[in-house]
Design a protein around this nucleic acid. Structure first.
Length: 781
RNA sequence: GCCGGGAUGGCGGAACUGGUAGACGCACGGGACUCAAAAUCCCGCGCCCUCAAAGGCGUGCCGGUUCGAUUCCGGCUCCCGGCACCA
């Protein structure tokens, strides 16, 4: 045994052995209970960043912990390999996205291996390979057959200069990121998956997931957004023809307070009014500018304009003016709302701005209403007033009574609505899974027959920012109609990358299966026993995966209702963003490693400069480490200098798994010093320890008791996944052993080391495994 | 704006069910060893007043419940995640 701890040598040796023995291959049949431990697969962005190290170390700690406790563990790894960054890299470097992606995968795989994760690499998959994405296409066609997938128009961000669809990320302050042109909304045909058919089950099944964090379940429930209300109509007559303006409200009790209605710019009534009034037409056009992002829509200034059209109040028959409001969304609900300024904060502000009447129709005991300023209690449930026959009724009774009256008139009824919208999966982008449809002049949209799958994506295109390059690829585009055989064109839209990640966890169970999407091995391995990934996926990815699983269940492909039994949501690893924007160019982001900070005499930050040119850069605050903001920290330097065990130990010690972590490597030295001390202690004790177990004397009894208290605490912390305190316990144990090393007895040291090494093994596997053998403790940990 | 979460020394964090706040580690200061440095080891380390002791203050801010609050309740501030085309 070397007297000095040499992590590179220790880790190389043991990793070679793991590879040679195929130590982490998971058997599809075993007497042991199975444990499927899954970390969210990475996007191959180039290099690992600290978020990956954190995520995969947590997963590996849980995998190894369960392996030690006798489980048949599966820990797979793959690549979420389609997506926008590959196209951006392609534009920047003139390299096809495929090459960039495969190169990144090769490099990052090497990095993952150097961290010593107990991964079964035989099940590796990449979503950009036809072997994988053909099953996206196959299932999409099944969904079309069953009406789960369908086509309708949807709204996208349109860059009028580049004449291309922009992702939300590519819209900055309402402008295209490359052209700086004001973005417009556009309606284009897209394919949708009917996730709303599963709203009720997606919501109620959350109760069957006790292993999920409450906050994630709350977020999902709010996202699905079941609400009980009333759908009602304001009748009108236009050009001599009767019509009904439908709205939905959760506050039917305030119906007597309606003083206006507002419709979206895309609403038929708005279009009709715009035909008559050029000023209104201009306003409708203005509403169509800007991005489609909900955050933008919710924070922009609320503007409106009267249409000059009137509808009748469904209960009183009063004349109600119809406005166009830029805050009303066509894609949400009916594309129209009733305006109750007395009891809705947004309507109150809108009415103040445009001088519309405000009526109080709800009273709350002990509260004095005033038109001067909005008070939060105005929106509380109370008792109806100024509401004729409904006066004095509370929320529940008034809604019941009003719904009954509306029903009697055929102008409305109670209705349950959902916030959840169907999932638009079409993307006007190259680097994704082709949607398997052929457009034929005579037959329309024709699904590609199963025996012609997969529709293979050409891998040699280089996008140039002017839209999807597939549209210029004659060899891809031109085909014949599967129905009539006449010349036809392929669909060039690709699928949302969330499709790829909605079922990869099933594929790991049978990654070598080339005849079917999944086989019976899924029944053995699924559900995932422990899923680990960033909290940023709390809603979309997890909801889509749950939905996809239920689809596959209903198609008879799998037997499970829910894919993930337990979920650990890792806190984000944040780092500062530095950027510079010069006139007429897009924002440039600089890695914090390339930036020098400036301080004044008091040690206060006064600025930051790029090391390369000494010029100032702007700070954009702390954000999640990401490729697009160039604020990732490459863990390779850490691994090279200190070894994987130190990197892993530091990562686990520095913060509890679920906490947000603002990156700071100040504690790395401490983790490294600890492992060196551990090595030295083992080296010094080697002789006596491997000898006889001398009886423990009185002085050591206290130490021994303390040792077992620490062990018990650490085991408890393992169960509640507080690996930072597990690491602390391991450190305390070494302190204890060193404090008692003076006495001649090896028994305490031997017992303590055996406990310590087993405790630390999932976190720092290389050094612990090596020392375990040195001590001759028997079979490997 | 809406939904979810967070805030404890100079720093990361600990305190499990309302009961000694600051475990463990980093940084820092002092010392030992050394020609010197690195490494290692020992001591100190929330703030204020102190030579010291004693004392006072202290878990983002304001208020409440309680014998007792980092922990429970109400109201804020700031930060982080998500908002459906970043993944």
């Amino acid at each position: 045994m070397q007297p000095q701890y040499q992590p590179a040598e220790v880790e190389r040796q043991i990793q070679e052995e793991w590879a040679q023995k195929n130590s982490f291959r998971a058997s599809d049949t075993s007497d042991k209970p199975k444990y499927y431990c899954l970390s969210m697969f990475p996007y191959p962005s180039g290099k690992l960043h600290m978020g990956h190290v954190r995520n995969y170390t947590i997963g590996d700690v849980l995998s190894r912990y369960h392996r030690m406790r006798g489980f048949n563990v599966l820990q797979p790894m793959g690549w979420d390999a389609f997506g926008l960054p590959a196209e951006n890299a392609a534009m920047a470097n003139n390299v096809p996205p495929a090459k960039w992606t495969y190169d990144n995968i090769a490099y990052m795989k090497k990095q993952l291996k150097s961290l010593g994760f107990a991964i079964d690499w035989e099940r590796e998959l990449a979503t950009c390979t036809p072997q994988y994405y053909r099953w996206n296409q196959w299932l999409f066609l099944r969904m079309l057959e069953k009406g789960v997938a369908y086509k309708k128009t949807g709204t996208v961000n349109w860059d009028p200069v580049d004449r291309t669809v922009l992702a939300n990320e590519q819209v900055i302050d309402g402008r295209g990121w490359r052209t700086g042109a004001a973005v417009e909304k556009r309606e284009i045909p897209m394919y949708y998956l009917a996730i709303t058919k599963y709203s009720e089950e997606l919501l109620s099944a959350l109760e069957t997931l006790p292993g999920w964090p409450e906050r994630v379940k709350t977020m999902q429930a709010n996202w699905i957004g079941k609400s009980f209300g009333v759908r009602l109509a304001f009748p009108y007559e236009l050009n001599g023809k009767p019509g009904k303006l439908w709205v939905f409200t959760t506050r039917a009790d305030t119906i007597m307070g309606v003083t206006f209605c507002a419709v979206a710019a895309e609403h038929p009534l708005a279009a009709e009014a715009a035909r008559r009034d050029p000023k209104l037409a201009a306003f409708v056009d203005e509403c169509k500018r800007g991005s489609v992002m909900e955050a933008d829509l919710a924070t922009m200034e609320k503007k409106g304009m009267p249409t000059g059209l009137f509808v009748s109040h469904p209960l009183t028959g009063a004349r109600i003016e119809v406005w166009v409001g830029n805050y009303v969304l066509m894609s949400y609900g009916e594309g129209a709302v009733m305006g109750v300024p007395g009891h809705d904060e947004r309507d109150f502000a809108f009415s103040k701005k445009y001088g519309l009447p405000i009526l109080q129709v709800i009273e709350v005991e002990g509260k004095q209403y005033s038109l001067d300023a909005w008070q939060s209690w105005y929106a509380d449930h109370g008792v109806c007033m100024h509401s004729g026959k409904y006066d004095g009724l509370d929320f529940r009774r008034s809604v019941d009574a009003i719904a009954a009256d509306l029903r009697a008139k055929g102008l409305g009824d109670k209705q349950v609505t959902w916030r959840l919208r169907d999932w638009g999966v079409s993307r006007q982008r190259y680097w994704g899974c082709p949607i398997p449809i052929v457009h034929c002049a005579s037959c329309g949209d024709v699904p590609v027959p199963e025996d012609q799958l997969p529709v293979v994506l050409p891998e040699d295109c280089v996008p140039d920012g002017s839209g999807n390059p597939l549209n210029k690829r004659a060899d891809f585009l031109n085909t014949s109609c599967p129905k009539c055989g006449k010349p036809a064109q392929r669909e060039t839209d690709t699928m949302d990358t969330f499709v790829d990640s909605s079922w990869y966890f099933l594929r790991y169970a049978c990654a070598d299966q080339n005849r079917k999407m999944v086989d019976e091995r899924v029944d053995y391995w699924l559900p995932v026993d422990q899923y680990i990934g960033g909290i940023e996926h709390a809603i979309l990815h997890l909801l889509y995966s749950r939905f996809w699983t239920k689809i596959m269940r209903d198609f008879g492909l799998v037997k499970l209702d829910e894919p993930f039994t337990r979920l650990l949501t890792q806190g984000m690893v944040l780092n500062e963003i530095f950027s510079r924007k010069s006139e007429g160019t897009r924002i440039q982001y600089f890695n914090p490693a390339d930036v020098e900070l400036e301080f004044d005499e008091q040690g206060k930050r006064i600025g930051a400069r790029l090391k390369a040119d000494g010029q100032l850069v702007e700070s954009g605050g702390m954000r999640t480490m990401s490729k697009s903001k160039n604020n990732g920290v490459d863990p390779q330097a850490l691994i090279d200098q200190y070894g994987a065990d130190t990197a892993r130990l530091f990562m686990m010690f520095t913060s509890p798994p679920e906490d947000t972590l603002a990156w700071n490597d100040d504690g790395v030295e401490g983790a490294y010093r600890y492992l060196r001390r551990l090595w030295k202690f083992a080296h010094d004790q080697h002789g006596p320890i491997s000898g006889s177990a001398a009886p423990v004397d009185g002085a050591q009894k206290g130490a021994r008791r303390e040792l077992h208290v620490l062990l018990q605490q650490a085991n408890f912390d393992y169960e509640r996944k507080q690996f930072n305190t597990v690491a602390s316990a391991a450190m305390k144990i070494l302190n204890l052993l060193e404090d008692n090393a003076g006495s001649a007895h090896g028994a305490l040291a031997r017992e303590g080391m055996s406990i310590l090494l087993r405790l630390l093994s999932p976190i720092a596997p290389h050094i612990t495994q090596t020392l375990w053998r040195e001590f001759g403790f028997g079979a490997d940990i």
